[in-house]
Amino acid sequence: MVARIKNKKSNVDLRTQIDGAKIVKEKEAAWKKFCTIQRTRKFLKRRRIRKESDAILKEVLEMDDATITSGVSVPKTLAEALPTDIEKRNNDMRAIVVTEATGSFNMVGCNKAWENLCGFAECEIVGKDSSILQGPDSNYAGLHDAVSRLFEGEPKVNVITNNYRKDGSKFINFLTLAPLRDEASGKITHFVAILNDVGDKISKRKNKA
């Protein structure tokens, strides 16, 4: 009698273990399926964003005005992007701002051309993130994807977005983003952004059309 009770208990325990194992496997399978769906959705969303961004870039680059991209060389290091020689920095016609490469990508400095374009003084932007230039019509998806491309190893990325000056006025920005590297180690230390207001060029093209 005791043996039967033990046998019955043993069988119950075994069934419980088997049922538990099935539940675990079902949960693991469901989780894997969920992760696959999420990855697929993320991939399709990123592909759509890149396709839309590339279409906008193509339209802008096809304009009969080579000044959009000509002469826009990209700095390789922090010292090149923001020279300690103030005169040299302020004589640079490129509107440059540099951010950290980690955390909230807080800005660490800019040049005079950037100040003139955006309306902020350098002392007002150091330690703040670039969201101060963004607003309702900013291309958040395109900007996020552009940063993702840099982390994926692309040496330079262009994106079109609407930015806002300190006074609230909006401008169409042909933005060039690139990593800045330590000369000795080659590691990325910062990101540089070169801003180019192309609103007038786009308006002129539309008027001609």
Rank of each mutant, 00 (worst) to 15 (best):
V97Y: 14
L133Y: 06
C118G: 00
N196K: 14
T99C: 06
V198S: 03
T161Y: 10
I194G: 01
T99H: 02
L175A: 08
K206W: 09
I172M: 15
L150G: 01
F174Y: 15
A209M: 14
K204N: 07
V108Y: 02
D197I: 05
G168P: 13
F105N: 06
V147F: 12
L133G: 00
Y164L: 10
L143R: 00
G119L: 10
L150V: 08
S131P: 00
F191Y: 15
V108D: 03
I172D: 01
E183R: 12
F105K: 03
H190N: 15
L195V: 02
D200N: 12
A146M: 07
K112H: 09
V108M: 00
S130A: 08
N106R: 08
L143S: 04
S138W: 11
D137P: 00
D197P: 04
K166H: 11
D182R: 06
G109C: 12
K166N: 05
G103C: 09
S148G: 10
S169K: 14
A178S: 14
G109K: 04
E152G: 09
G186D: 11
A101I: 04
L180D: 02
V98P: 02
S131D: 04
K166Q: 14
E183L: 14
G119N: 10
H144M: 06
R181P: 00
V159S: 02
S130F: 10
I125A: 01
A113R: 04
R149C: 13
W114F: 15
C123M: 02
N139F: 11
E115T: 07
A113L: 01
R181D: 02
D145A: 15
A146L: 08
I160W: 07
E154L: 13
N106W: 00
S185Q: 13
K206N: 15
V192Y: 06
S185P: 10
N173K: 03
K204I: 10
F151P: 01
L180K: 06
A141K: 07
S148M: 07
G127C: 04
D182C: 14
I160F: 13
V159T: 15
A95Y: 08
K170Y: 09
A193M: 13
V126W: 05
A209H: 10
V147L: 10
Q134S: 09
Y164T: 13
G153E: 09
F120C: 05
A178N: 07
T176L: 03
I132N: 00
V157D: 01
A101N: 12
K112Y: 10
P155V: 09
M107K: 03
L117A: 02
D145H: 05
E122S: 09
T161L: 12
P136A: 14
L117K: 06
G109N: 05
I96E: 04
M107N: 03
V157L: 04
S203C: 05
A184H: 15
T176Q: 02
L150M: 11
R94L: 15
A209K: 12
P155W: 12
I202E: 12
N162D: 15
I96Q: 02
G135I: 02
L150N: 03
R149T: 05
N139W: 13
A193Q: 06
V198C: 07
G109E: 11
A101H: 12
